[in-house]
Structures are given as C-alpha cells and as structure tokens.
Amino acid sequence: MTEEAIIQGCLKQQAIAQKTLYERYSVKMLSVCYRYAHNREDAEDMLQEGFIKVFSQIHTFKNQGSFEGWVRRIMVHTCINILKKNKKFNESVDILHAAALQVREENIPSIIQAKQVVECIRMLPMGYRTVLNLYAIEGFSHKEIGTILDIEESTSRSQYTRAKAMLEDILIRKNIIQKPKPNYLVAASGAS
C-alpha cells in the first residue's frame, strides 16, 4: 500500500489503512518515545497515545514535508505533553555536580554504538534528557524548547549544556570514551 493510499484510507477511517500505517511506523516511533520515557511500558503508552493523535489529526497533514516527519512531530509532542502532565521532566538534579563538569564535545568519537549512547542518555535526569533530545536529536531551537516546556530559553540552554556534561561524564565512567588528557603545552604557555 502506498503512503498516499494509507493516508487516504486513514482519512476514511479504514481499519486496514490504520493497521498498515501503525505497522510501517511503530518501530521507529517507539524508539522516539523510548528516549523520553522512564521505561519500555511508558514508551509503549506514549506510542499508543501518539497514534491515537495521528489518526484523529491526519486530516491536518498538508503534504508539506515528509509524512514520517509529521508523525514524528506528533509523537514528540505527545511525549512532552505526557511528561508535562505528569511533571516528570521536573525531576531534581544535582546541579552543582553538573555545573562542575566541563563540556568537551571534541572528545566524543564520531562513531559510537548508538545503543550504548541511547542507554547513557536514558541515565540523565528527565529534564536534562528531554532538552538534549529536543535540541540535539529533534532539532528544536532553545526558544522552541522554552515554549514547549514552559521554561525560559536560557534555562533550555543551561540544561542542554549540563546534559552534555553529564552525558560525557557517564560515557567516560562506562569506558565508552576516554577521559581527556590535560594539555600541558597549553597550560605551560598560559602561565607565562
């Protein structure tokens, strides 16, 4: 069944088209939901609620951009709305620990097993994880994130910076990346 046939069938509320749409996108969308959820069960609940919204709002799809991207945006917004409703993205964070870490993006190798990184991201506090996902993975701006999460743009920026620092610390502790070696040449030249 073509994408257009699926969309047209879903507009007519045909069960076979809805089933085909679900089968085509559920695995990818579950991985999106999993990045925001505490566990697989929560991710599955988010996925189900997201697909209910997809089916009820399919008439708003205007064939501008990819249909998969449209479905993904609904899933992300569904996840965020569930987190906001449950206030799970406001979990407390050891800010002093996070602020003390320095961000060193250049130390993260370009090729790391995606599964390992996802598991490390899932270790972040919900607020940090949510901002990191929205900014680095979904491509939202800090201004958009502020609007979505009802926080200041500067809070989004600081949460993202702290999330990267904590993620780096987790990756180092799990021996996925190496702890950066001090650059004595830079330190020595700065001392003069």
Rank of each mutant, 00 (worst) to 15 (best):
T2C: 08
E3D: 14
G9I: 00
C10S: 12
K12C: 12
K12G: 10
Q13I: 11
A15H: 07
A15R: 06
A15C: 05
A17M: 02
K19F: 06
Y22W: 13
R24P: 02
S26V: 00
K28F: 03
K28N: 08
M29S: 09
M29H: 04
L30G: 07
L30D: 06
C33G: 12
Y34V: 03
R35A: 12
N39Y: 09
R40P: 02
A43S: 06
A43K: 11
E44F: 07
D45C: 11
M46I: 15
M46C: 15
G50I: 07
G50L: 12
G50C: 11
F51M: 03
F51G: 03
S56G: 09
S56M: 07
I58N: 10
T60Q: 12
T60V: 09
K62F: 03
Q64V: 13
G65R: 03
F67I: 08
G69V: 03
G69L: 04
G69A: 04
R72C: 10
M75Q: 04
V76T: 14
V76G: 10
T78I: 11
I80S: 08
N81W: 09
L83S: 12
L83D: 11
K85N: 14
N86M: 06
F89D: 14
N90D: 11
E91V: 03
V93M: 09
V93W: 04
V93H: 05
D94K: 05
D94R: 02
I95P: 00
L96E: 08
H97I: 07
A100L: 03
V103S: 07
R104I: 12
R104K: 11
E106D: 10
I108Y: 05
P109V: 12
I111D: 11
Q113F: 03
A114L: 00
K115V: 06
V117S: 03
V117T: 06
E119T: 05
E119V: 02
C120A: 15
I121Q: 01
I121Y: 00
L124G: 12
L124E: 08
P125F: 09
M126V: 06
G127F: 05
G127P: 02
G127N: 05
L132T: 02
L132K: 01
N133P: 07
A136T: 10
F140P: 01
S141C: 11
K143G: 07
G146L: 13
L149Q: 00
I151F: 01
E152D: 12
S154L: 05
S158D: 10
Q159R: 13
A163F: 06
M166E: 15
L167F: 08
D169Q: 10
I170S: 09
L171W: 00
R173G: 01
Q178A: 15
K179L: 15
P180Q: 06
K181S: 14
N183V: 11
L185N: 08
S189D: 12
S192W: 01
